[in-house]
């Protein structure tokens, strides 16, 4: 009986394509989780969403020109952020409006191109990812984009964190904040390119926001936040890919459902910032509070007593 269950559990691992898919998605989970900490702290979730949608025309163009999809995707993703920055500085529009206009414009252009330009781009795979059927060249591109991201973050992690925390101080000590801005945008675009095959453009934003948010709820030290983020993300990618094969589910969808489940757990049970812990603290402190509520009269009395 036990051995039958065991066989059932390990059966998927006989397939090289599945093992490969699990490795690739774990790697993507790692890259997304690391960047996720910076993106959530900087408040750039919407920017991530914008870039992920804006890469679509790049993928189509890349296939049409027969160049690696990662290059086309990166050029268009990064181009969208430049366009956003330019329009924002030249018009009186607010940033969220500009982001909305630019990313839907790019995305729509991509849709139109897919239907007109002959290529074997499968819209469904772009939208929702296809890690179980990932090709060798796609894996190589994912690895290159992901490794580039990790290297850049590893080398510039302190400056990027300072830039997220206090860009004014970065400027005051003579650092070039413009360079940091574009560095963070570039690695964001690179990460999205890396995650394209795993999560697809619709769900990649989840992998860029949720792990960092889990870490942020669980700790107020950055290195711990990073660990929680990477842990939850890699676990979700591995477990989600495995489940999706076993039960014949959408891979990107399963990964994000698992990840969101972890987020809900963290949100409720986080030791300090969880809903339960906060409710408990509130109850404790209201129990200890002095029975007389604050009244403005008391304060004026104190003032009157003062010479």
């Amino acid at each position: 009986m036990a051995s039958a269950l065991w066989d059932w559990l390990v059966e998927p691992f006989q397939y090289a394509f599945l093992v490969r898919a699990i490795w690739v998605s774990a790697f993507v989970g790692l890259v997304c989780a690391v960047l996720s900490c910076y993106i959530t702290l900087k408040g750039w979730s919407l920017m991530g969403d914008a870039i992920s949608h804006a890469v679509v025309p790049g993928v189509v163009v890349a296939y049409a020109l027969n160049i690696p999809f990662a290059i086309g995707a990166f050029v268009f993703g990064f181009g969208a952020t430049v366009a956003i920055g330019y329009i924002k500085s030249k018009t009186r529009l607010k940033e969220d409006a500009v982001i909305g206009i630019v990313f839907t414009g790019f995305f729509a252009l991509g849709l139109v191109m897919i239907t007109k330009i002959p290529s074997n781009v499968d819209l469904f795979h772009i939208l929702f990812g296809n890690v179980l059927g990932i090709s060798r060249s796609d894996i190589i591109q994912t690895l290159i984009a992901g490794c580039l991201t990790l290297i850049v973050i590893l080398l510039r992690r302190k400056d990027l964190l300072l830039y997220c925390f206090d860009p004014n101080h970065a400027k005051a000590i003579g650092l070039r904040t413009g360079v940091m801005y574009y560095t963070l945008l570039s690695v964001l675009a690179l990460t999205i390119v890396a995650a394209l095959q795993t999560a697809g453009i619709i769900l990649v934003i989840s992998m860029l926001v949720t792990p960092g948010s889990i870490g942020y709820l669980l700790s107020d030290r950055f290195d711990h936040m990073l660990l929680y983020s990477v842990g939850s993300s890699v676990f979700s990618c591995v477990f989600g890919t495995y489940l999706s094969y076993h039960f014949d589910l959408s891979t990107g969808g399963t990964i994000v459902v698992v990840l969101t489940g972890l987020f809900i757990l963290a949100m409720i049970f986080a030791p300090k910032y969880g809903i339960l812990a906060q409710a408990l603290r509130q109850r404790l402190s209201s129990g200890q509070a002095s029975p007389t509520p604050y009244s403005p009269d008391e304060e004026s009395n104190i003032m009157a007593d003062h010479p």
Partner: peptide, 10 residues
């Protein structure tokens, strides 16, 4: 962070 300006790139 007050010292970053004196440090090397890393």
């Amino acid at each position: 962070m007050g010292r970053y300006g004196y440090m090397n790139l890393l």
